[in-house]
Structures are given as C-alpha cells and as structure tokens.
C-alpha cells in the first residue's frame, strides 16, 4: 500500500493513499469539529465545520470528503476558520429550535459539544423560531424536527447500512426536512424495521427512544462504522 505524506498544522504525517484529509488530521493526533460526518457513512460535506485551509488552494476544503494528496500543507485551526466555524454553529442554533435545557440529548449532544468547541457563548444571529412538528407515531421512537440539523446521518445509515431507505430529505432550502416514506407518519412506513440505527447515529435530540426524557439519550454513533467494518472486512470484534 502506498503512503502519502503531508503536513497538518506543522506536524508531518503519513497516511495510506486514498485517506481523507480528516483521517490525516486524526493521524496527526489533531481534530476538527464535524457534525454530518460519521465513520461508516459516505461523506456529504454539508455541515462545513471540517473545512480546512490548504496552502496553494484558494478554496477551503472539507476534510471529510477530500482525499489527502502528497505534500499538502494543511491548516486546521486558523483565526479565519475559527470565525467561520463559530458562525456556522450559530446558524445551526438560529435556524432550528434548540433548547438544551430540556432536551433528551442534553449532556450527550454533538451540536452542544461543537458549540463549546467553537466557543459559541451566544448566537449573534436572531433565532428564526421555525414552526416544526414532532412525529411520535412510531411505537418505540420519536422524531422532533425542532432539533434536526439536516446532517442526513439517519437518511444515510438507513439507506447504506440497514438498506431500508425509510428516510429522505424533502423540500428545499430552509424548508428542508427529513421525511419518512411519502411524507407519512413514521409509524406507518412499512419499510421501517425499527432497528433504531437512525436514533443511534443522530447527533442531536431529534431522533430518540420514547423512554428517554431530558438528558437521558445516549446515542451510539460508532455503530455505523462497526457494522460496515463487520460487513466489508469481516471484523466483528473490536
């Protein structure tokens, strides 16, 4: 296997050819915030938090969806990137209805963590207060659209891992929302196997088990990766 060498924030790092920039950053012992990315699912580069600067490139590149190339010099934490990331997180908070205080995911929420990571102490953008609904039609799980950040992890895990394709994104722009089936109540969609993978990988409190109340949700985002590894590399044991 050929190896690519590159530099991340001053650290030299070597990764197998075909690795993403995100993998190279992690190999250097560093990290960038991510929300839509999840190991085991195809990247979509939608949350824009993992954008990094690459010397010689005018554009910022999403680390999750960009292949590392030989000799690249990457910067992951410049003042410019910090500023953009904080604004992106503020936009997430302002476009939905995220009230950590009584959320099922309080304390175990990737959006909440990312807000801390980027130093967001308040949103400079006014809250949009969109009118969104809750779908509690499924016997075991609920979907609270107020907390959805449209990362599409649920869509992808259901399609790529479970193979049921219950979820997709409907509408467009700021009207985008996750739908089950033909925009049906989740509980009425035959394709759903109630496997719960979408709940496991949801980074916020949008998808949750009904028995969970405030701060009781503890997701398992690593499962997508485990399943894919088991399926593709026959590695069932961690």
């Amino acid at each position: 296997m050929s190896v690519i060498t590159l530099q991340v924030d001053g650290h030299d790092v070597a990764v197998p050819a075909g690795s993403t920039l995100l993998q190279a950053i992690q190999a250097a012992g560093l990290s960038v915030p991510t929300l839509c990315h999840l190991d085991g699912l195809d990247p979509v580069a939608a949350c824009r938090l993992c954008l990094v600067e690459v010397e010689g490139s005018q554009r910022l590149l999403p680390a999750c969806a960009s292949e590392a190339t030989e000799g690249q010099v990457i910067h992951t934490d410049t003042a410019q990137l910090q500023g953009y990331r904080r604004m992106a997180v503020e936009l997430f908070f302002a476009e939905g209805n995220h009230v950590c205080a009584f959320c099922v995911a309080n304390g175990d929420c990737e959006l909440q963590d990312v807000a801390v990571a980027v130093g967001m102490d308040h949103s400079r953008f006014p809250y949009q207060d969109p009118q969104r609904s809750v779908d509690a039609s499924h016997p075991r799980f609920s979907l609270d659209h107020n907390r959805c950040i449209l990362c599409t992890r649920c869509v992808r895990v259901c399609d790529q891992i479970e193979g049921a394709h219950v979820w997709d994104v409907a509408e467009r722009g700021s009207d985008c929302r996750i739908v089950a089936g033909l925009d049906q109540p989740w509980g009425e969609v035959d394709a759903c196997t109630s496997c719960g993978k979408c709940v496991d990988v949801c980074p916020t409190g949008a998808l949750f088990a009904k028995e969970n109340t405030t701060a009781e949700k503890h997701p398992h985002p690593e499962r997508a990766h485990q399943l894919r590894r088991a399926r593709e590399q026959q590695q069932w044991i961690r």
Partner: peptide
C-alpha cells in the same frame, strides 16, 4: 400516484417524495 411511480420505477417512497418536493 407517487406510490405507483415508486412501485413502477422500483424506488423507495421517501426518495420519490424527496424528488417531487424538491
């Protein structure tokens, strides 16, 4: 009608709805 289209083209329902509403 969307249901019929999904059946005929062998597509998931949510995929058809996602496209139709986009």
């Amino acid at each position: 009608a969307l249901l019929q289209v999904a059946r005929g083209l062998r597509l998931p329902l949510s995929r058809v709805y996602g496209v139709a509403s986009f």
